[in-house]
Design a protein around this nucleic acid. Sequence first.
DNA 1: ATGCGGCGTTAAGAAGCCATCAAGATCATT
DNA 2: AATGATCTTGATGGCTTCTTAACGCCGCAT
Lengths: 224, 224
Amino acid sequence: MTRVLVIDDEAPILRALKINLTARQYEVSTAADGASGLAAMARDRPDVLILDLGLPDMDGTDVIRGVRGWTSTPIIVLSAWGQESQKVAALDAGADDYVTKPFGMNELLARLRAAVRRASPAPDEPVVTTGEFTVDLARKVVTRAGADVRLTPTEWQLLEVLVRNTGRLVTQRQLLAEVWGPGYQTEANYLRVYVANLRRKLEPDPSAPRYLLTEPGMGYRFRP
Amino acid sequence: MTRVLVIDDEAPILRALKINLTARQYEVSTAADGASGLAAMARDRPDVLILDLGLPDMDGTDVIRGVRGWTSTPIIVLSAWGQESQKVAALDAGADDYVTKPFGMNELLARLRAAVRRASPAPDEPVVTTGEFTVDLARKVVTRAGADVRLTPTEWQLLEVLVRNTGRLVTQRQLLAEVWGPGYQTEANYLRVYVANLRRKLEPDPSAPRYLLTEPGMGYRFRP
DNA sequence: ATGCGGCGTTAAGAAGCCATCAAGATCATT
DNA sequence: AATGATCTTGATGGCTTCTTAACGCCGCAT
């Protein structure tokens, strides 16, 4: 189910969105100001963010930047009519789309569908195979030598980020932000511990990794 | 340079867009109806499509579907104010964004930037190839003779700056400032050491460089 | 010819980063 | 309340990378 976070300080709008989106099978969480919105973003990991620019505590573009600092989750911005410079600023700060109030629910829903569709370009190969093990992203199963490998939730999240970026170098900051949350970008220790766990469970020779590679000073890379 | 195709049957709008976009370093091609627009799409392979829904020969959503049949190039739709059902149909047909006429040029430009940014995570061509090696900026991979070349973080940063300025001379001050920071603009020694490292890893004959060239007294240049 | 400045090369110590282990803290479940 | 699994945290040793300095070469101007 698609998860949506709505950040808006106007209770009627919040309620209307929640009712309409829930009725259409979205899973909705809400926040009423920028600070708790950013916290909810980190906690709930929604698939889309709907953000009202007129928040009481923070400037809207700062919220966008706060989100963009660690994730590329689509952001749809809501704002009053006619403030073109605000539109430009929001889009340049990293928003994906812009809806002017008052808006029709159908338009918002269409933009929501478009944003979700763009964000998941192709549910391409959900199964990745190496010479040693197989990762099924959709079913959340790892197989090695015919048997299932048991991974803890954190181990799985870490492996998933690496596999979704197969061949690409993933920086430590990015891994920490995506697995532990944006507040953990300096806890490089966690990475060492959990990469070691994964290697012990997946690599033929954990001390000479062939698939989960270290790039000293930069990050890690999954190479099938 | 980013290439834009504009499909619109109103000559004044076409002209205004062409002038404004060209002035901002976009490469603009145009078409005045749906059929020739689809042909231009296939011929020019633009990076973004700006499409007016009110075309004389075809329904706008059919043009969108015709494009979406074979490419995921971002589509920004232009249309008259107030026709919400049309908006919804266009977005569901696969459009990425929607601008209502009359629109401000700044807003359109912002949406254009947002569309291009979404479409290409790395703004430029992420892969550069020479006769000897290839550099993939996005994945952070350098391949030479079929094998990956391991680079240290500093080596990467240096190579990245040079490759992002392919063909251009990059001064020593600029390199030092971008790789080591603005306080290191006199430490020309670092450059010699690290350029030598890169040459040893990348050049066929490190003592007679063909790709990482020295410009005595000025700086360095990457020539593919 | 000779001195000078910029460049290439090399090597060694210093600093920072990584792998590994293990023990305490936390959480879910019974 | 107890148990087992999972997560966090700290410490250690080993390794990579960065920094720094020394030396030789080449081109250029005197």
